[in-house]
Structure formats: structure tokens, C-alpha cells
Nucleic acid binder design. Structure first.
Lengths: 113, 113
DNA sequence: TTAGTCGCTCTGTTTTTCTTAGCGGCTCTG
DNA sequence: CAGAGCCGCTAAGAAAAACAGAGCGACTAA
């Protein structure tokens, strides 16, 4: 009977979709650091403090599959691989920036483990 | 020598902070559904399709610790618990909405596993 | 030659997440 | 009153993800 039970609240499909990518550890940070320009594998590993090679490799594949980043190989001879954002990735940037602002204003005090 | 190596790219601390919460599975969705008003434990579980009791319980504690949601008990007699957003949680709403818009425009085509 | 960087992958361990089951308090039905 | 069901959890074990660390092929710089 409770009226609020008759109203079926369901999680927005768009949000669910967004968090199927961003809701995984590291993905948000990877996209955020790529926001300031293409980076090599090693540069990414350095930028995203704490991530391991294996996981970074995994995440980059996922992000590539999802169409957020591209992997381009320049066979120098010293073969160099560069990861960069796609248009989709770029469009995510302003949202990430606001997220950053929010965190500064609302989470700065949180003692992080 | 390489100029791009001298420039130390490091992941923005604010983004890292934000994703220490939002980068965990379910958290974003929980905050998003609470955006449309306080909900009971069971209502939340129904709204966030796929989450289990144990994990929802865990996540709610985390979100409460982080100051994003509150847990208020009304000892009816039929004891009723309501979870709601704090001011911090509310401020996250607009960002989540933009994230939803972004997902619609950029991820709708992704075949989701 | 030796040492070092880059871009990974493989192995095995630890952490996280998930599934399943159950419990006490309450209400609703017969 | 005796089930049966909903609410709000928690405990225990299994499955999945993340982790550290070693190693490897191709290359370069000393």
C-alpha cells in the first residue's frame, strides 16, 4: 500500500552505462590524465600513481574497446606507443573537471586510507 | 632529454579523491538513485539492479563515512530506515546528470556485457 | 659489453566482490 | 494463534579482480 512503493524507482540506464566504465578502479583517473594530452604506456603508469603494469594494460584495452581512447603505434625504430583520447573521451573532460571541483569542496577533509 | 619527460604528469589529487569513492562499483549508482529522494534499504536494492544485500550494506556504510549519505532510523514500531543524501551528495547530482547525458551520447552503442 | 628504457605478459598471492543462508522484529492472513 | 512474508541486516565461503614481481624482446646510450 505504501504509496512510495508503487512508484518504481529504477536506476537511470544512462548512469548505469556510464558507471560500467567509470565505476571501475583507475578508469576515471586514466581518462583524466589523458585529458592533458597523449601519453606513452610508461608515462601513464607514472601519472596514475599506484597502478600496476598488468592492470593498466587491461584498463587501456577496455577503454579502447569502449571507444574512449586510441592506441597508436609509431614503429620508430624505437617503437613508441601513444595512448590518446577519442572525441568521446574528450567530451568527458569537462565532467571530470567538475567532479574534481566537487571533490575539492566536499571531500578534502576525508582521511583517505 | 625528451621534453615530455621533464614535464611530470601526475594525476590530479582531486580526481583521485573523487574516484576513491565513485571508482568503486555501485557507489555512483547509489548516489544517483538517492538523488530523487530518500529511500529505504529494500527500495535501494530494487533501484540498483544487480546489487546484493551484503554489498549494498557495505557501500552505504562507506558513503556514510565519506559524508555523502545519512542513515536515519524511525523506530515506528515497524522500524524503518531511510537513506538520504547529505549536502555533499546533493551537490554531486548535477555532475551525475551530465555524466548521464554524456553516456547517452557516447556510449549508447556499446554492447554491454 | 653492460646497463637501462619501453611495452608488455605470465605467475602466484592478496583483496574485493558476490552468492547464499539465516536471524530478530514486525505485520498480515486465515 | 499459526504460518507466511517483508524489512534490515550480518556471517561465511566461493568466485572474480587487483596486486607485486619477475621476465622478455627490441632497442639505445655508455
Amino acid at each position: 500500500m505504501a504509496a512510495d512503493d508503487l512508484q518504481v524507482h529504477q536506476c537511470d540506464a544512462a548512469i548505469t552505462l556510464a558507471f560500467s566504465i567509470l565505476g571501475k578502479r583507475w578508469n576515471g583517473m586514466i581518462v583524466a590524465v589523458l585529458g592533458s594530452g597523449p601519453l606513452s604506456f610508461v608515462a601513464l603508469r607514472r601519472a596514475v600513481t599506484g597502478i600496476s603494469d598488468a592492470v593498466l594494460s587491461d584498463r587501456l584495452s577496455e577503454l579502447a574497446d569502449a571507444g574512449l581512447v586510441t592506441r597508436s603505434v609509431d614503429p620508430g625504430p624505437p617503437v613508441a606507443v601513444a595512448y590518446a583520447l577519442t572525441a568521446s573521451g574528450e567530451e568527458l573532460q569537462p565532467v571530470l573537471q567538475e567532479l574534481g571541483r566537487w571533490a575539492l569542496e566536499n571531500m578534502a577533509h576525508i582521511a583517505h586510507r
